[in-house]
Nucleic acid binder design. Structure first.
Lengths: 153, 153
DNA sequence: CTCACTTTTGATAAGCATTATCATTGCCTG
DNA sequence: CAGGCAATGATAATGCTTATCAAAAGTGAG
């Protein structure tokens, strides 16, 4: 899976005439390993562990290249700074963010298509994509809060 | 409606001990008039028409105050910079963004509650809020594109 | 395999947006 | 209406992102 994806990425870069360099490969490999939603700073720091000489500018340039190629997707949660995730094929999902600890979970249950027809009729837009974020309390913070309420009875 | 809302805002500010000043009032009044989704620069420029002496810092400070009080909501569309809209009571809606011209339209048809139960069961989160954005082509850009395709036949 | 060409890299400077500082102004309570 | 303190506006400082440029590295031809 990871290897197939990596090959597909390389092929896409070759097609567009971009060179497959050490820093770029390191970043792509890191992103296929990392299953979270790192921001640019985290990417930089993690990559530096294995490639100490890498520069911040290269990380910025590589990230925007991968965005342009559709390999990477950017998400903003609560309007905070950008976080990134690989755009795995056939992995439609959305994000659930804990209001207390900030933990991000993915969920796949999305029946947006049930609304989209109606929205298209009302607005006359032709909808191509959508993004959904839900905010609430994760199981850990939920039980912590329940404990706290109990204490106060 | 606008006046009632304005009074409610003032009351909330008084309760929290914030002073009701000229610049703050001007910004709130502007936001109740303006029905779009201005960014901080637009707010600054529009306010300066009626209050030429106002400083950018005051606009930033007032916007974050209004966000803190829940009077204003921030939205990020496509991860671009923040835009703002008043948090009118009982006005649940989402945003539809044109991929070509950037026009933003609101829509109210949202049946998120149909998914939320299932998501809560699967993830064990307690969902409190959600945000949905749809991207596509607005009616104008849609017909422009159709014309264009026709030309190429 | 080597060379030559072109892109990419890393270090650094430059550019913007946002936040902090601080003397002055102006709300608000008594 | 006067005193106290928060808010303002101008400006400096900060921090994130992009631009610049010489050196290094990838690629394709021979």
């Amino acid at each position: 899976m990871e290897e197939t994806f990596l090959e597909a990425v390389k092929e896409k870069m070759r097609q567009k005439g971009y060179k497959i360099t050490g820093p770029r490969l390191a970043i792509i490999r890191y992103l296929t390993r990392e299953k979270g939603h790192p921001d640019i700073q985290e990417i930089f720091e993690d990559i530096r562990v294995e490639k100490p000489g890498i520069g911040m500018a290269t990380v910025y340039r590589t990230v925007s290249l991968l965005l342009e190629l559709g390999i990477l997707r950017a998400i903003t949660l609560r309007g905070h700074h950008l976080r990134y995730e690989l755009n795995w094929p056939d992995h439609h999902h959305h994000h659930l963010v804990c209001n207390r600890c900030g933990q991000v979970t993915e969920f796949g249950n999305c029946n947006f298509q049930l609304m989209s027809g109606e929205i298209e009729q009302v607005t006359r837009f032709k909808i191509e994509e959508h993004a959904l974020e839900a905010y609430g309390l994760c199981p850990q913070c939920l039980s912590a809060r329940l404990d706290y309420s109990t204490e106060n009875i």
